[in-house]
Every structure is written in structure tokens, then in C-alpha cells.
């Protein structure tokens, strides 16, 4: 079964089969990164554009390496050098890029729905690399890949996601993916960080970290975005760490073989203690490695079924 879509805009619209296809395909691509010659000719002659309207090192680099290992030509456009600063609209920027016949546009944007706007007008495939507080599908896919590698399967696992759920696209994409694959997902954070009616997405909400950690197989810690911090969400970083920071002591409540995940970059001593981040429980660097494999898989799969999709 191929991936029957032009774009990857989120996890929410994906079927379980599509998710499994991406994860299985990533397994094959992971091997490429272990070779001496870390390159296959799969996407030779394809043009990929990394269109980043928000600063990002990790995701942009990961897509860039993924593209290069597949022999695609990939170029980076960041907001500071694009015409956005000159007041050009997103649609005009997209039309201009489109006129140069790219095959895939990878977009990161601070506004939810920006990739959808692009996907509607572009012939190229669009990959959402994070849009506002909406979705970050490749992050959730690489998280799921990492969980599967460590735990064998996702079905039946108890997963806790802790932190600023309200502003987190990583949380939303992971909630969609993990619940689709049959994990039991709970979230925890200050009440000011829990979006309304989130229970309808099939998660359990906790306001105490200890209860959220109890018996968990997987704990995902979200980054506290200091830069977008409006003081009214919580009084101080110190109080946040005291109430929700992940420490080795607290981690004892989780299962003995718990894994700790974080989408990065880390704020040590804010949402996670250094001891936990550097502990054997941490799979944070595996997440980074797997990110490349998962993104190679997504690039490959989107390129395959594309023409059918566009004609219909």
C-alpha cells in the first residue's frame, strides 16, 4: 500500500496503515546512515526546499541530511533571508518558489495552517515541519520509531507527555499518533498549559507529575519555550521545575525500563534535570539519529505516489 497523498500536513489525517508504512520504510533507510558511503541515488534529480520561517537547527538539518543521503538537491531558505521581511505574502513566496519547479517544499512556520495554505496552491509536495501549535508530524513519527525500536511495539504502552501542551505541536502530533497505534497516553502540566477539551483526543489529564509518571513505559518531556513566555502561565521557572521538572527521584515512579524522550533543545534545570537527560533512560540522541531515517522515508514515499495524486 503506497502513501496516497501529495502532502504530509499532519498525523491526524493519516491512517494506521500509512503510519506503519512510514515507520517500516524508515527501518530500511536507517541502514543507509551506517554505511561508509551514506548516500543512495533514490531521489537523484529531485529538488527539495527547506522553507523555514522560524529558527530551527535540528529539524532543518535533519531534513537536509535526509535529502542529501537520498541524492536530492536541497536548498535552505530562512525567513531572515527571504522576501518575507520585505512584506511579501506567504502565497507570493510560494508561487515564486513553485515557478522554479521544486518537488518538495518543507515548511516550518509560526502560524497554524500555513502549510495547508501552501499545499493548496503548490504542485510540489508539502511537508509540515511544524506549524504554530498545530502539528509536527515528522517529530511524532521519529518518536514512534524510537519507541518501537526500544519497546518492540506501541500498542498497550503507557506514555506520559509532560509540559506546555497548549503551545505544543509536538504534543498534538504525538497524541494523534500514539492513540492511533493503541498506546495509553496521559498528559501533565500546569492547568494554564492544558488546552480545553483535550480529553476528546483520547488522553487523560494530570496536574501532578507524580501521578502522571506512575507506571509509565515512556515519558516525553516538552520544552518550556522561554522565548514565548508570557508570565501569566506560571509564576517562575523555579516553581515550574519544583512542580513539573523531571528528576531521577520522581522517575522512580515510572517503570524500571522507562525511556525518556525530549524533542530538543533541552532547558536543563527547567523541564528536565541534567541527571535525567544524561541518564541511561534517555533516548534523546537516538531520536535525533532516527529523525534522519524517518525523514528519508517520508521524502521517498511522498515522491513515489505523487503523480497519480496530482492528476486526480
Amino acid at each position: 500500500m503506497p502513501l496516497k497523498r501529495k502532502d504530509l500536513l499532519g498525523i491526524e489525517p493519516l491512517s494506521v496503515e500509512e503510519i506503519n508504512l512510514i515507520l517500516d520504510t524508515a527501518k530500511a533507510f536507517k541502514e543507509v546512515s551506517t554505511r561508509d558511503i551514506k548516500k543512495v541515488p533514490t531521489l537523484r534529480g529531485k529538488t527539495l526546499i527547506n522553507l523555514f520561517f522560524e529558527p530551527s537547527t535540528r529539524t532543518r538539518t535533519s531534513f537536509e541530511i535526509a535529502g542529501k543521503r537520498l541524492s536530492a538537491d536541497i536548498l535552505n531558505i530562512s525567513a531572515s533571508t527571504s522576501s518575507v521581511v520585505k512584506g511579501e505574502t506567504l502565497i507570493d513566496t510560494a508561487r515564486n518558489l513553485e515557478a522554479m519547479y521544486p518537488d518538495i517544499i518543507i515548511i516550518r512556520h509560526s502560524r497554524a495552517g500555513a502549510p495547508h495554505l501552501l499545499a493548496n496552491i503548490c504542485r510540489a509536495s508539502v511537508i509540515n515541519a511544524g506549524d504554530g501549535a498545530h502539528e509536527h508530524p515528522t517529530q511524532a513519527l521519529l518518536d514512534a520509531f524510537t519507541i518501537k525500536e526500544n519497546k518492540g511495539q506501541i500498542k498497550g504502552l503507557k506514555v506520559a507527555i509532560i509540559g506546555d501542551i497548549l503551545h505544543s505541536r509536538v504534543a498534538r502530533s504525538n497524541i494523534h499518533l500514539l492513540t492511533k497505534l493503541g498506546a495509553e497516553v496521559s498528559i501533565a502540566g500546569p492547568a494554564t498549559y492544558i488546552p480545553v477539551e483535550i480529553e476528546k483526543l483520547g488522553v487523560k489529564v494530570y496536574h501532578h507529575i507524580d501521578a502522571a509518571l506512575e507506571g509509565r513505559d515512556v515519558v516525553m518531556i516538552l520544552r518550556i519555550q522561554r522565548e514565548r513566555q508570557d508570565k501569566s502561565y506560571f509564576p517562575s521557572l523555579r516553581e515550574y521545575f519544583n512542580l513539573f521538572g523531571l528528576t531521577l527521584e520522581r522517575l522512580k515512579r515510572a517503570k524500571k525500563d522507562v525511556i525518556i524522550m525530549h524533542p530538543g533543545p533541552l532547558n536543563r534545570g527547567v523541564e528536565i534535570s541534567s541527571e535525567v537527560a544524561d541518564s541511561p533512560y534517555s533516548v534523546i540522541l537516538e531520536q535525533v539519529t532516527n529523525g534522519v531515517a524517518v525523514r528519508m522515508a517520508v521524502l521517498y514515499l511522498l515522491m513515489g505516489g505523487k503523480y497519480e495524486e496530482v492528476v486526480s
Binding site: 491526524e12 497554524a112 506549524d131 501549535a133 505541536r169 488546552p195 480545553v196 477539551e197
Partner: peptide
Amino acid sequence: NEGYYSTLLGLPGIP
């Protein structure tokens, strides 16, 4: 509107 759909879409809500 603030509600299930604003949570789903990641858009800031008006309660």
C-alpha cells in the same frame, strides 16, 4: 472559538 477544534487545530481560542 475556544473549544475542541481550537485545541485540535492549535489556533488560539476566544472563549
